[in-house]
């Protein structure tokens, strides 16, 4: 029984990690074409991401979009999650569901909606359009993490501080904000990672004016290979692992994933 179990585990693990191993070995290839097993060893394709103007500008675009969209998403999510949790305002709960909806639907639906909206308002191709679109698409993530964080706060604590004479503002600043902050940061991180990797919404809002990294990669795989793509895949995976690793170290990852009820 244990032999079967271990063989099965090894197979699934190989299926999950195998492609990543192949990509990494291609990315350290020293030749100009893709080959596996790789010929030679070099970091030239990693240097290329930063040295080549086109790849570097795509990287910069993606990082700026991801950072601004995540910041905006947390700013929009915080008051909604707070009002829904603290006062149980029905309207806030409606906003909460509306904010989560775009993330659940197939992304092409929202991509098309944004394309229609921004061509109608004349904002098609503006840099700010993709930032707004990513904010709305990924809003669900901070909404969910912040709500989880708020639910972990003991309401007796708030009662007690009110009894001791603290007003709403003081309670928010001294109890709620410090306790919800790690969850807000986690929401920011989830948003950042997913925005960095998002393709179709970026394509439909700014695809012909600004190139983000996923758009540039897609164009590159259609019109010929370059090992730079493999090195970007490795770079992205490392960034993802570092960010989620930090959440695991400083936050409560199993709780965020819903494993513990506490």
């Amino acid at each position: 029984m244990n032999v079967v179990r271990n063989a099965y585990l090894a197979l699934v693990a190989l299926f999950l990690v195998g492609p990543i191993i192949v990509i990494s070995s291609v990315s350290f290839n020293s030749r100009n074409f893709l080959s596996f097993p790789p010929k030679g060893f070099s970091f030239r394709w990693f240097v290329e991401i930063f040295a080549n103007e086109e790849w570097f500008s795509a990287l910069t675009n993606s990082v700026v979009i991801a950072f601004s969209a995540s910041l905006l998403a947390v700013a929009v999510a915080l008051p909604v999650a707070y009002a829904a949790w603290r006062y149980g305002i029905r309207y806030a709960k409606v906003l909460l569901s509306l904010g989560i909806a775009p993330f659940i639907l197939p992304p092409v639906i929202m991509a098309l909606a944004f394309l229609l909206f921004f061509t109608t308002t004349g904002m098609y191709g503006w840099f700010v359009s993709v930032v707004i679109s990513h904010t709305m698409f990924l809003l669900a993530l901070p909404l969910v993490t912040i709500s989880l964080g708020l639910e972990s706060i003991d309401r007796n604590l708030i009662e007690a501080s009110h009894t001791l004479g603290a007003d709403d503002r003081t309670v928010f600043r001294t109890i709620i904000l410090p306790m919800a902050l790690p969850y807000a940061i986690a929401g920011f991180a989830f948003c950042f990672v997913l925005s960095l990797n998002e393709y179709i919404i970026a394509l439909m809002t700014v695809g012909f004016t600004y190139e983000t990294l996923p758009i540039k990669i897609f164009n590159a795989i259609r019109y010929g290979y370059t090992p730079v793509i493999a090195s970007i895949a490795v770079l992205f995976l490392v960034v993802n692992v570092v960010i989620f690793g930090l959440i695991a170290i400083f936050g409560n990852l199993p709780r965020m994933l819903g494993a513990l009820e506490e």
Partner: peptide
Amino acid sequence: TIWLVYILAQLSLSEVLIAFSWQILFSRTA
């Protein structure tokens, strides 16, 4: 936790990069 971090990282990896990886794995040359 290590597995969860890896699985989250793979889950967030752009579909573009996943398609590219499998295109290499299914290619004749590599």
